[in-house]
Design a protein around this nucleic acid. Structure first.
Length: 725
DNA sequence: AGCACGCCGACT
DNA sequence: GTCGGCGTGCTC
């Protein structure tokens, strides 16, 4: 009898599967196995068990082990990964590796901890009277046993707690269960469901009534109560015994949203896959979801691959957020994969945003997605902030804030409220320049300026991490008068501190919150009212709710308005809407002031009206006219190497690998928007096709030839549906 | 991607 | 005479 032949996907940059003998093992499809691969051992996923070894017959190597620590990936997830591999033209083994928790990618086997025991008093009154009133410390611990608690929780109440609990256990007062058993018979326990307005009700009803695949765009202005719609749509799924997948952008808002979910569904196990978890915790949360214990999975883009045996609904919050697009490796869009998954699993998917991506908006206009509008503020007392433009010609360095902005901040402080000054640039100044010859400090590894960080007296590259001490004199002409040009958060902090001497100024950016816990501490300070003026970057724009904030000043946000990037307006609208939304979420209407050089740009008329629909209509008309996405299908072949000519030669050759197809344009290679990064020259080649089918046909033909091109110095990657050009 | 094999410069 | 540079070739 001949040995069974397995097809195994491995995490190597080779777009093919590998055949192995099963040896003494009998792995299932979707299971992970350890295999010999050249001189090393790798973990792979079994994709077929009765395969024909073909040319390798007789010289197959056998698998080394079946760790059985990971439940086999179900066929649904394998199919999802196959789709992602083919759509983004990435090796299947690499996609599967990315879809699985880190602990299952290596050759070490993962052993979950023993199930944790929960302790509970069967008859609390009997226990309390047995202890008597002379042992208050024990009484305190005993009272905790009214509900199931862990040993850790008991110990944190009193270090000696477990000794007493063992005694009570021996005496029959205390029983144990495991978390798993405890949740098995649980009934769905809902927190109070707040009343909904008519629009919210209509949205919840539409989602609940959907059968099979049904994509929705929940288009809700800031404060219109999108989250409440999610919660009630989720509640009806939970009541039907189904699981729900909720995707959120990669930001620090997850704890807040998580808190809200837990409050609403206190008895439901929620697997939260946020960045704060270590690999082990992640694996455990993933197992909870995979084995159907966790009913809600809340996580960032990677969570879209989580196996969910009873999936009933997918929610993508802030669907326009660029962090849904992975920017290295498999460059997938978790939002688009989520829609595919919903179709595959025949469940509804809700894409929510106040400023939808134009791709999604167009899908709604074309009736491919059902539009669920929320146009009224549902949050109690909330009013839309008044947005005003402050035209600035060229603000002198020492000023920073427009006089009217200064007055507005003053007003907020007088009223005992907080003000936020938003500038999307950290450091002191983005440029250090020589006043004599015009020299500017730039990175020696990147085509980028070095940013001045005055506090540490360093010049830093924000792209490659290079840094150096501030030079005392111009290296070109020897002049000692080097001047910072432009504004960053640090410089603004200085200016604002001088202009408002009595105010407590708090800067929040990646530099001030680098260490663990610093961001939470800063946010707490804001919530407790221990800061008056916040200076912050994009970090502060998203998600956070600042009840005391009533005034927002936005600086230098619109530098992109006349840039090459056709998505600049769309993105700026989303950013400004989000920043503006920080003001006046509670009570008194907030004030939002935007300092701009381009006050006449049509963009601002639509922003001031808060009219996303009009902006979207104009931008979509432009894109249709100019044959830009979503009316054409794009892919970018990016390449980099230490020497530019090699990159040029590679892309010239790659260009020839594409077939001539009707409805396909393969552009000439051009320099990337940042031409050099971390010592590598970068170029790219743009493919524009009328339809996805043509684009993929071209890539299917060309990519094997490109992969076979000789130059090994070249690092290249393909970006399907690129967000950045 | 790794990792080995392979063929040419400055050192214990 | 070796240690080690990274070019190129393969992995069921």
């Amino acid at each position: 009898m001949t040995e069974k032949c397995l097809q195994v996907a491995l995490d190597v940059p080779l777009d093919r599967l590998f055949s192995y003998g099963a040896g003494e093992f009998n792995p299932q499809i979707g299971e992970r196995v350890l295999v010999p691969f050249g001189p090393r051992r790798l973990s792979g996923i079994v994709l077929a068990t009765g395969a024909d070894p073909g040319e390798y017959a007789g010289k197959l190597r056998s698998i080394l082990a079946c760790p059985a620590d990971m439940p086999p990936l179900p066929e649904q997830v394998l199919a999802l990964c196959r789709f992602v591999a083919s759509y983004y033209h990435h090796p299947l083994g690499a996609v599967l590796a990315a879809a699985v928790p880190v602990v299952f990618r290596g050759t070490a086997s993962f052993s979950p901890p023993d199930p944790e025991y929960l302790y509970q008093a069967g008859d609390l009154q009997a226990l309390l009277s047995a202890i008597g009133s002379r042992a208050p410390a024990r009484l305190k611990v005993a009272e905790l046993l009214a509900v199931p608690v862990t040993a850790g929780q008991l110990r944190s109440a009193n270090p000696a707690a477990m000794r007493w609990v063992r005694d009570w256990q021996a005496a029959g007062f205390v029983q144990t269960t495991t978390a798993e058993a405890d949740s098995a018979g649980e009934t769905l326990l809902l927190g109070p469901q707040p009343p909904l307005n008519a629009e919210q009700q209509a949205a919840v009803a539409a989602i609940a009534a959907a059968t099979g695949f049904a994509p929705f765009l929940l288009y809700g202005i800031t404060g219109s109560g999108k989250t409440e719609v999610y919660l009630q749509a989720i509640a009806s799924q939970l009541a039907a015994g189904r699981q729900v997948l909720v995707l959120v952008p990669e930001i620090n808002l997850t704890p807040q949203l998580e808190q809200r979910f837990r409050q609403r569904f206190p008895a439901v196990l929620l697997a939260s896959l946020h960045s704060g978890l270590n690999d082990r915790q992640r694996a455990l949360a993933w197992l909870d979801a995979t084995q159907g214990r966790a009913k809600i999975v809340l996580g960032t883009r990677l969570s879209v691959f989580t196996p969910l045996p009873q999936l009933g609904l997918i929610v993508v919050d802030e669907e326009h957020d660029p962090s849904y697009k992975q920017q290295d490796g498999v460059r997938y869009s978790a939002r688009d994969v989520a829609v595919y998954r919903a179709r595959q699993s025949r469940v509804p998917v809700v894409l929510g945003s106040a400023t939808p991506s134009l791709e999604t908006w167009q899908n709604a206009q074309a009736k491919r997605y059902t539009l669920l509008p929320l146009t009224r503020r549902a949050v109690k007392d909330a009013t839309l902030p008044a947005i005003r433009l402050l035209p600035v010609k060229k603000i002198r360095a020492a000023e920073g804030l427009h006089p009217l902005a200064r007055e507005a901040v003053e007003r907020a402080l007088q009223a005992g409220r907080q003000a936020l000054v938003f500038i999307n640039r950290r450091g002191y100044a983005p440029v250090l320049a020589c006043t004599e010859c015009g020299w500017m400090a730039s990175c020696r590894h990147c085509a980028a300026r070095l940013v001045l960080h005055l506090g540490e007296s360093r010049l830093r590259c924000h792209h490659c991490g290079f840094e150096e001490a501030v030079t005392p004199a111009c290296p070109d002409c020897g002049n000692h008068d080097l001047q910072p040009v432009g504004h960053g958060t640090q410089r603004l902090e200085d200016i604002v501190a001088k202009q408002f001497p009595g105010a407590r100024v708090l800067r929040i950016d990646r530099d001030s919150t680098r260490r663990k816990g610093e961001l939470d501490a800063a946010l707490k300070q804001v919530h407790d009212g221990d800061a008056d003026i916040l200076i912050g970057t994009q970090m502060l724009a998203k998600g956070h709710d600042f009840p005391r904030l009533s005034c927002v000043v936005i600086l230098n946000a619109d530098t992109g308005l006349y840039s090459m990037d056709f998505r600049a307006e769309e993105r700026l609208f989303a950013l400004l809407t989000q920043v503006a939304g920080r003001a006046g979420r509670h009570g008194q209407g907030g004030e939002v002031l935007i300092q701009t050089l381009f006050e006449d740009h049509p963009f601002y008329a639509q922003l001031l009206d808060g009219d996303y629909a009009r902006l979207a209509q104009r931008l979509l008309a432009e894109r249709r006219q100019l044959r830009l996405p979503p009316f054409t299908q794009w892919a970018i072949l990016r390449a980099e190497a230490p020497q530019l000519p090699r990159v040029q030669a590679f892309l010239d050759a790659a260009r020839l690998a594409f077939p001539h197809l009707r409805g396909l344009v393969v552009h000439e290679p051009v320099a990337a928007s940042m031409t050099r990064r971390a010592g590598h020259e970068r170029m790219q080649l743009l493919l524009v096709a009328d339809t996805r089918a043509v684009l993929h046909q071209a890539m299917d033909e060309a990519l094997p030839r490109i992969a076979a091109l000789p130059d090994s110095q070249i690092r290249w990657s393909l970006d399907v549906d690129p967000l950045e050009v």
